[in-house]
Simulated scan of single mutants.
Amino acid sequence: MKTLTELIQNYQNGIPNSDSEILKRMEPLVKGYASRIHCMEREDSTQELYLTLLKTLPYLSSSSSEGECIRYMQTSVENRYRSLCRSC
Rank of each mutant, 00 (worst) to 15 (best):
M1K: 14
M1A: 15
K2H: 13
K2S: 15
T3I: 13
L4R: 11
E6L: 03
E6D: 12
E6P: 01
L7M: 10
Q9Y: 12
Q9T: 06
N10Y: 02
N10Q: 14
Y11P: 03
Y11C: 00
Y11M: 01
Y11W: 10
Q12V: 09
Q12I: 01
G14H: 00
P16R: 03
N17H: 15
S18T: 13
S18D: 10
D19L: 08
D19N: 09
S20V: 03
S20I: 10
S20W: 04
S20C: 06
E21P: 01
I22M: 06
L23G: 02
L23Q: 13
K24P: 08
K24Y: 11
M26A: 01
M26R: 01
E27C: 08
P28A: 11
V30L: 11
V30S: 04
K31F: 14
K31W: 14
K31V: 14
Y33C: 10
Y33G: 01
A34M: 07
S35M: 14
M40L: 15
M40T: 04
M40K: 09
M40W: 05
E41G: 02
E43R: 07
E43S: 04
D44S: 04
T46P: 08
Q47F: 09
E48Y: 11
L49F: 03
Y50V: 00
L51M: 15
L51V: 12
L51P: 07
T52H: 10
L54C: 11
L54K: 15
K55S: 15
T56A: 00
L57F: 11
P58I: 10
Y59M: 01
S61M: 10
S61K: 06
S62E: 08
S63Q: 13
S64C: 07
S65V: 00
E66H: 05
G67H: 00
E68Q: 06
E68S: 04
C69F: 01
I70C: 06
I70Y: 10
I70S: 10
R71K: 11
M73W: 00
T75E: 11
S76T: 08
S76Q: 07
S76V: 04
V77L: 10
V77T: 00
E78I: 04
E78Y: 02
N79T: 04
N79D: 02
R80L: 11
Y81C: 09
Y81W: 13
R82E: 08
S83I: 06
S83L: 11
L84H: 09
R86Q: 14
R86I: 05
S87W: 14
S87N: 15
C88L: 13
